[in-house]
Amino acid sequence: MGLIGDEDAVEIRERLKEMVDPVRLIHFTQELNLEYGREAKQLLEEVASLSEKLTLEVYNFLLDKEKVAEYGVDKVPGTAIRNSKDYGIKFYGIPAGYEFSTLLDAILDVSKGDSGLKPESREKLAAVTQPIHLEVFVTPT
């Protein structure tokens, strides 16, 4: 049985029609040791199947060291969301519940390459000249 119900799948497929550029979900797992790993991968597989513009790549956190370094993933399950460009957006853990909606937002924003922020915010962000790492702790409920 799928993690995404039929009705939800229809709704998600409809939302993903807004996608512009193809988006790659690059997922790192370590299934043997993590109870959450299998479910995270399954959820992403189901999402990826809902749009032709979405692809899922799965790597092993322990074995695919080059990819781990390339995408800068430091824990699992971890998923980088990018189009041809890497915007530095990742999800760690299962993006379930409320966070699932955030995942869809991220896919759409990355696909459009547009943040949708106010002009004033864009100006302030363009002026940032030092690295900023934002880690947002969330829960699925």
């Binding site: 915007y87 530095g88 957006i89 760690y92 934002l134």
Partner: peptide
């Protein structure tokens, strides 16, 4: 998305 120096993890 706005600045390559900014990374965001959930």
């Amino acid at each position: 998305i706005e600045n390559d120096l900014i990374h965001a993890d959930a």
